[in-house]
Computed example of a mutant assay.
Amino acid sequence: MPRPGSHKYDIRRSRLRNRLDDHGFPDERADQLANEILRNPRGAKARLLQVARKFVPRPGQRGA
C-alpha cells in the first residue's frame, strides 16, 4: 500500500475519486470516500456496503 502523499497514492486516489464521481457522488463526498478507502483498505468493503445501502435503491424500490 502506498503511503499518503506519495505519487502512487495520489494516482490511486484520483482514479478512485473519479470512479466515485462518475457514479453520482458529489465532488466533496467522493474525495472523502476515496481517502477513507485508501487509508483503511480492510474496512473499505464494509464502508462501501454502507454507502451502497444509502445511495443505491434495492431491487423493486424506486430511488429517493
Rank of each mutant, 00 (worst) to 15 (best):
L33V: 11
I11N: 04
K54F: 13
A52G: 12
D21P: 04
Q61G: 06
G63F: 05
R12Y: 13
E36N: 03
A44L: 00
V51G: 05
F55G: 09
F25G: 01
P57V: 13
H7A: 14
R19K: 06
P41C: 02
G24R: 00
P41Y: 01
R53G: 15
D21H: 10
Y9W: 15
G43C: 02
R3I: 14
D27S: 13
I11C: 04
N18Y: 04
P59N: 10
D31N: 06
R42Q: 10
H23Q: 03
M1D: 07
Q50R: 12
G63C: 11
P4R: 05
R62Y: 10
D10W: 03
H7F: 11
H23N: 10
A52N: 11
D10P: 01
L20V: 06
Y9L: 06
E28S: 10
R13P: 00
Q32Y: 02
A34M: 01
Q61N: 08
V56P: 04
D21A: 15
A46K: 11
G63R: 11
K54Y: 11
L49A: 15
N18S: 14
R53D: 13
D22E: 09
R47G: 09
D21W: 08
D22M: 02
P41K: 01
G43S: 03
Y9M: 07
R42P: 02
G5K: 04
R17M: 10
G24H: 02
H7V: 13
R13K: 15
E36G: 03
R62C: 12
S14E: 13
L16A: 10
R42F: 06
L20A: 06
E36L: 05
P59Y: 08
V56L: 11
D22V: 03
G60N: 03
P41Q: 01
H7L: 10
K8A: 13
R13W: 02
P41H: 01
P4E: 05
R58D: 14
V56A: 10
D10K: 10
I37D: 00
H7D: 12
R53I: 13
R53F: 09
S6A: 14
R29N: 09
Q50A: 12
K54A: 15
L48E: 02
P4K: 04
R47P: 04
V51C: 06
K54T: 15
G24Y: 03
N35G: 09
R15T: 14
D10V: 08
P59H: 10
L20K: 02
D27K: 13
I37E: 01
D31L: 06
L16N: 08
R15F: 08
L38Y: 00
R12K: 15
D22Y: 04
H7Y: 12
K54R: 13
R39Q: 08
R15E: 11
L49E: 15
A34V: 06
K8F: 05
R12W: 10
N40E: 07
V51M: 08
A34H: 00
G5D: 07
R12D: 14
H23Y: 05
P41E: 00
A44P: 01
I11R: 05
N35Y: 08
A64V: 15
E36T: 07
V56R: 05
R53L: 11
A30R: 04
R12I: 13
D22T: 04
R62W: 06
I11P: 00
E28Q: 09
S6G: 12
R3G: 11
I11L: 05
N35T: 14
K45N: 09
P41G: 05
